[in-house]
Design a protein around this nucleic acid. Sequence first.
RNA 1: AGCGUAGUGGCCAAAUGGUUUAAGGCACAUGGUUUUCAUCCAUGCGAUUGCGGGUUCAAAUCCCGUCUACGCUACCA
Length: 488
Amino acid sequence: MSEVRVRIAPSPSGFLHIGTAKIALFNWLYARQTGGTFVLRLEDTDADRTEEEFVQAMCDGFKWLGIDWDEGPAFGDEPQKGDFGPYRQSERNQLHRDAGQKLLSEGKAYRCFCTKEELDIERERAQKEKRPPRYNGKCRDLDAAESQARHEAGERNVVRFKVPEGQTIIEDLVQGTVETQNKEFDDFVILKPTGDPIFHLAVVVDDGDMNITHVFRGDDHLTNTSRHAMLFDALGYDRPIFAHLPMVLDEQGKKYSKRLHGANVLDWREDGYLPETMLNYVALMGWSPGDDEEIFTRDELVKAFSVDRLGKSAAKFDMKRLQWINGQHMRTMPIEELRDRVLPRLSEAGIDFSGKSEEWLTQMAAICQEKLKTLNEIVDYTDFFFKDIDEYNAKAVKKQFQKEGALDRLEIILAVFQENDCTTQALHDAIEAVCEEKELGLGQINPLVRLSLSGKMMGPGVFELAELLGKDECIKRLENAIEYVKGL
RNA sequence: AGCGUAGUGGCCAAAUGGUUUAAGGCACAUGGUUUUCAUCCAUGCGAUUGCGGGUUCAAAUCCCGUCUACGCUACCA
């Protein structure tokens, strides 16, 4: 068996779609696991929809996910890689034309002079009579010489593939044996009047010429695969092994629309999700490990992946599950790494942390690690460190500051802070001791501390955050809180 | 209209004829964890395996039918 060669062939008409990412992931996993080659090929034949910035945007998505390619086209700073180029379909046009001509000259295809209008009428009639809409093969048996003459005279025509008799059998890695009667297919077009290829011809030629051995793609192509198989055969290529994967559905169970937030994989980066989360989650939509393991790093995925555990049914996107997976990854991440990933989110929120030491920032990340579900939540969890409290959480004010005895308790807390070292341990012990002495519960003290120091009712542990805030600042904030409560 | 694929608790899914009174996780609920939110831990909740037949001693698993969803049937990709 020759070396595994797989590919992802997106049409760069925008961003990297979550569905494309899923397909790319499985191709990539297979390549990495087998030591094979992962090829990036751009299906950019739809010229007006393809722009260089789209190519860049799409590849930014791949890079963020950590899906790297061994062969692919040049763009931006990327050099062309690989010996099977060009890797843009638009630059392979002549190859496709030649393949079409070859089939024509071998009698495996023929020119069709039917007009579009004729065919439209025929199709409509078929619909009305509840017959399957298929081309009737009118031009199939046209005399070759006559056909050529009409073509040379400039008569508009397309080239159709002459679908052979018999049946086509595909051994799909996911779908199993797919057997189709060739008579279910009409003679489909392979070359447009301009001589440009139709998609089906182009992919087959490209996959054939690039020696692609395995094709993992969306199951929307399952029916097309029989056509492709016939084309592979007719052109004398070895057929690759196919694996048709179910597509990604949105939370309503519909095909993931491009317009939906989250269709772009980079939307998830923006929302504070980790690339390994996306890989992990998407892998679990359509593949399951044999055991109860659910959390996988990129490397673990490469190791654990196996073709025979791919599923056939489509899965709906589930935000809650994604969040959970993200939390799991955040928790196992080295603290320095979490710090470095979280800091840019603070910058984006306009928070200036340049005055803090690296050690302090690491500590800040550490006290949040067990609580965060997304990177973005860091802002809500820590912004009070970097600015004065301009407003106390209204609900918390009602629940804490406006309670009977709040002021007395704040005075007690202030005394504790004044008399003790401002460390997690010291504060904890001191508060506990005071609680016992005054017969108070921690629940009557800690929420007041939190609210006074952070203005919020949630966040990192109170003593931990107090230590990071520093003694002077804590005392100042407690005094402010006392003034505030007096004014109520 | 033909052909194709899928249908297991709200969601992801395991189990391809029997060790299953259908795993596990998410979500949800309750309790505990230095208050609350979150995390974590524990417990719990919840499925006549789309529906109807059949084969079998035995079916989520095999067969037939049916419904629903999606895909392909483009001079789109």
